[in-house]
Design a protein around this nucleic acid. Structure first.
Length: 727
DNA sequence: AAATGTGGAATTTTT
DNA sequence: TTCCACATTT
């Protein structure tokens, strides 16, 4: 078939797109046209009449990926994408639960809690049950709850082999009861509840199994145990499951992603008639050859992988550059210099990214960039819908939609301050606990005396007035009205520095308006219509899509982000900074199961972001937690073929540390009469291997040095006896 | 109810 | 060091 749909696909892509009915695992390397294959596959299924829009379900992890898929699909096919189930796991589950809320055992207007809301609820549960938060850290329970649910377990299914865990599981059960009472669900609950909905209702399950003849899964390597079971439940032997993923880019094990799902896929989704097809996409359309060579060489050091080598028909390109800096500030200065000269060469700063392993590393870089007057943008941090003022406004809206939401009630009952104090709330909470009702219902049912009681009554009246005033209003006007009548606008106007918050509240009104306007284009599960209630849909949207971290800069800006945040992106030039043992691979990963392999995949992701130029940098000393740390070069640098790397500095630069450690005088003193030895120096030991001197004491023949060995840890050695070699 | 102080922790993060 | 949560103060 020579339809324009299929033109310009390479042989493997074409094979994947046109696979006959049956399940398939597409091993799609970085930059191999994964999204193109996924969207073209859907378009091809529709064009050839093998599927109609309503029989396709495509699932992604992020809203961004879902939007991109929708956009590209609309460009490929004239079919209206509105009827299609394309969205995130959470978005699709939300859609399912809104449609079948009765069978799912949920109130019609159940609210979705984000992680903040969830933590707040846990703390409230603790307070109500007199649980000591010092002995049982709320965050720990939160982790247990989410991990358990993502494994598919309810409290009665969690294995508890010690007293502490048994108590935690009791707390988990209390939390579940609170969720039920308040009509709220957390993120993993969306998945677990819809899993239970389908597994517990055969007719529903059969309905959806018959309906979705094609399941397509993006970033399959990121699926967790429950998502995998969810897919298996939705698939019957006639369902074609098209899973696209890359085991080498699995970097989310810490949040439950399970690469083993890729290994099990062939076994679990094969049918007697059709074994699972496996197709590898290895041709890369992003990077020049040297960059791919480096990526391939690095990832080959991993044991557990399905195996794959990227190649390009494009040029070998520039060599990969590496640089050793004496300190983190020198490293930043180097990056600034290169960025400047590349800008002079005409590369847009927006096409360059500085990547790092952990957010803390951005500070030094930002400082250097700021002083050099280079525009930059840092990814990460507070998202739009997570801002306090936005959450306050949303809490008022939630009370309009679902007054039993105690979390929303408590957030705004006295914000802006209206004289409802702690005493009143204590009494109200006791009352609610005693009667087993929500705070809202309790407050309505009770007459509280005195001034405080009057304030509370005022609040109730205010909410009722809002509800009456906004009934029938378009969503945007509802939000506008709530922002004004809640007193939030006035409160922030009066507050010094509240201007930004006012702007964010205005932005919330805009967001509501565009949400309604673009309802047609909304990702499945968020659109109005199925729930029949725009406000409720908007609240779900706010919870499921936290929004951008930061408004885009006006002028093109250098991109700063963690390697995790860079996944899926590409840049003309990439600086991968902080390539040091302890940082990257991170020291914590050394003790984790398969931790270093995951770190290596992370480095692989970083390298494969670069299209044309790649700089790998390492600082010999770095300020961390208020202390100077000396680190040896990352093992990942050594795992790259030397011939591929162009060193821009003497590889083992014998440069004195740029910054004296605070209490360093004595330590330098210790080595004063031992020329050739100094703190921060790279050394080699016959047995312990490579390391770096981080401390010293004693004089002359008594001199001892403390060495941080790459593989053997930190040791004190006598200079006189340990046969240390400068390295 | 805001302002100030203290102690502890400090990979990675989407929904 | 720096940030945060939480407690105490004013």
């Amino acid at each position: 078939m020579s339809s324009p749909l299929l033109s310009n696909l390479n042989a493997e892509q074409l094979a994947a797109v046109t696979l006959p009915h049956g399940s398939a695992l597409i091993l799609a390397g970085a930059g191999s046209g994964k999204t193109r294959v996924l969207t073209t596959r859907i378009a091809w299924l529709l064009a050839t009449g093998q599927a109609n829009p309503s029989s396709v379900l495509a699932v992604t992890f992020t809203n961004k990926a879902a939007r991109e898929m929708l956009a590209r699909l609309s460009a490929l096919t004239p079919v209206n994408t509105r009827g299609m189930w394309i969205g995130t796991f959470h978005g699709l589950c939300n859609r399912l639960l809104r449609t079948h809320y009765r069978d799912a055992g949920l109130p019609q207007l159940f609210q979705i809690m984000d992680m903040q809301d969830q933590l707040a609820l846990i703390k409230r549960v603790y307070k109500a049950s007199n649980i000591d938060a010092d002995r049982f850290p709320p965050r720990q329970l939160q982790a247990l709850i989410n991990d358990s649910k993502e494994e598919g377990s309810r409290p009665n299914q969690v294995e508890a082999n010690d007293e502490f865990t048994r108590r935690q599981v009791e707390h988990f059960a209390l939390y579940e009861e609170a969720c039920r009472r308040e009509g709220v669900v957390d993120f993993p609950e969306l998945l677990l509840r819809s899993f239970e909905l389908l597994s517990g209702h055969e007719s529903l399950r059969e309905h959806y199994r018959r309906r979705f003849s094609h399941l397509l899964v993006d970033e399959f390597q990121d699926t967790n145990a429950l998502q995998y079971r969810w897919l298996r439940l939705l698939a019957d032997p006639h369902t074609a499951v098209f899973a696209v993923g890359d085991d080498d880019q699995s970097i989310y094990a810490f949040r439950g992603a399970n690469i083993a799902n890729m290994q099990h896929f062939e076994r679990d989704f094969a049918t007697p008639e059709a074994p699972v097809k496996l197709i590898k996409l290895e041709q890369n359309y992003r990077s020049h050859g040297h960059i791919l060579d480096a990526a391939n060489a690095l990832i080959r050091h991993n044991q557990s992988r399905l195996g794959k080598d990227l190649w390009t028909a494009d040029a070998q390109g520039e060599p990969v550059r590496a640089f050793v800096a004496p300190s983190d500030t020198h490293e930043a200065a180097f990056i600034v210099d290169v960025v400047k000269s590349l800008i002079d060469e005409g590369v847009s700063p927006a096409e360059m990214a500085v990547l790092y392993r952990s957010n803390a590393q951005s500070r030094v870089l930002e400082h250097a960039l700021f002083n050099a007057a280079i525009a930059y943008r840092v990814y990460g941090g507070m998202r739009f819908f997570e801002r306090a003022e936005v959450k306050h406004a949303l809490a008022y809206l939630r009370l309009l939609a679902a007054p039993d939401d105690d979390g929303a009630f408590l957030r705004v009952v006295n914000f802006p301050p209206r004289g409802v104090g702690a005493r009143t709330l204590e009494a109200l909470q006791d009352q609610a606990r005693a009667t087993g009702t929500s705070l809202w219902q309790s407050a309505c049912a009770t007459r509280f005396g005195g001034k405080a009681g009057g304030s509370l009554a005022g609040f109730l009246a205010q909410i009722e007035a809002m509800r009456a005033a906004t009934a029938g209003l378009p969503l945007g006007e509802t939000v506008e009205h709530v922002v004004q009548s809640s007193g939030l606008a006035a409160h922030y106007t009066a507050e010094k520095g509240g201007q930004e918050r006012i702007e964010n509240l205005q932005e919330l009104v805009n967001a509501a308006e565009s949400f309604v306007r673009e309802a047609d284009l909304q990702v499945a599960g968020e659109a109005e219509g199925e729930t029949g209630d725009a406000l409720s849909a908007f609240l779900a949207h706010a919870a499921l899509e936290a929004g951008e971290t930061q408004a885009a800069e006006g002028r093109p800006a250098l991109q700063l982000m963690t390697v995790h945040a860079a996944k899926g992106l590409e840049f003309h030039t990439v600086f991968l900074s902080g390539l040091e043992e302890g940082l990257f691979p991170h020291e914590n990963s050394l003790s984790e199961h398969d931790g270093v392999e995951e770190e290596r995949r992370l480095a692989y992701v970083a390298i494969t972001r670069a299209k044309r130029r790649l700089y790998l940098t390492h600082a010999q000393s770095r300020m961390l937690h208020g202390q100077v740390r000396y680190n040896v070069a990352s093992r990942f640098l050594d795992e790259l073929p030397r011939a591929l790397i162009q060193w821009l500095s003497p590889q083992r630069a014998d440069v004195p540390p740029a910054r004296e450690p605070a209490s360093g005088a004595a330590r330098y003193d210790a080595l004063r009469d031992r020329p050739g030895w100094r703190i921060g120096q790279s050394v080699k030991h016959a047995k312990f291997g490579l390391g770096i001197i981080i401390d010293a004491e004693g004089r002359g023949t008594d001199a001892r040095v403390q060495v941080n060995f790459r593989n053997a840890g930190v040791k004190w050695l006598a200079l006189e006896y340990a046969k240390l070699q400068p390295a």
